[in-house]
């Protein structure tokens, strides 16, 4: 999707994109790749397109409120945040900087390539964010949030979250 932003839109985009993710505050919405578009519709009117990571992600409401707040603070009176589904969000939309921050925070970042088709083969190893070992095993495909799986490092024995591919 190629859209040309005006300088003002680019500024609002940076502002909205700098909002931290409500559940993973180490990364911003821009790094997570969920902010799709910021459009200025009038002197005091902005529309923001946001896409959910998972269809049922409860954080989308908090994200929406936070975006409205930062843009209100910047002086925009009328901010509407619209949820868009297509194209579907993928973990490939997380930026390199976002991946680095996730790993630093103790969450193994998703492997590139998105979700495999059909049943989920887990072949490529996931690196332990604590000790760096690639000798890790899956404990559960579902962890503290829908977007993560729970793994354990065989080397250092620490359990850790893995942002699973979608």
């Amino acid at each position: 999707m190629v859209t040309t932003e005006t300088p003002l839109e680019a500024e609002f985009h940076r502002l909205a994109g700098s909002v931290p993710d409500p559940e993973l505050p180490v990364i911003t919405l821009d790094e997570l790749g969920v902010l799709r578009r910021v459009r200025v519709d009038g002197p005091d009117k902005v529309t923001v397109h946001l896409t959910p990571t998972y269809t049922g992600c409860p954080a989308i409401e908090a994200m929406s409120a936070d975006i409205q707040r930062v843009l209100h603070e910047r002086g925009v009176a009328d901010v509407s945040v619209v949820t868009v589904l297509a194209p579907a969000w993928s973990t490939d939309d997380i930026s390199d900087e976002g991946r680095r921050k996730l790993a630093e925070f103790g969450i193994a970042p998703p492997r590139p390539g998105g979700a495999p088709d059909g049943p989920v083969p887990l072949t490529l190893s996931v690196r332990c964010p604590h000790c760096g070992s690639t000798d890790t095993e899956l404990l559960s495909r579902f962890s503290s949030t829908a977007c993560k799986a729970l793994r354990r490092c065989v080397a250092c024995r620490e359990p850790f979250d893995h942002f699973k591919e979608l």
């Binding site: 579907a88 979700a115 049943p119 495909r141 829908a146």
Partner: peptide, 20 residues
């Protein structure tokens, strides 16, 4: 439903794998 299905199918792949 195409957009929703394109998104949800990726989630359901994990549900299916879990059940299998």
């Amino acid at each position: 439903f195409a957009d929703l299905a394109a998104k949800a199918v990726k989630e359901v792949a994990y549900h299916r794998d879990h059940a299998e």
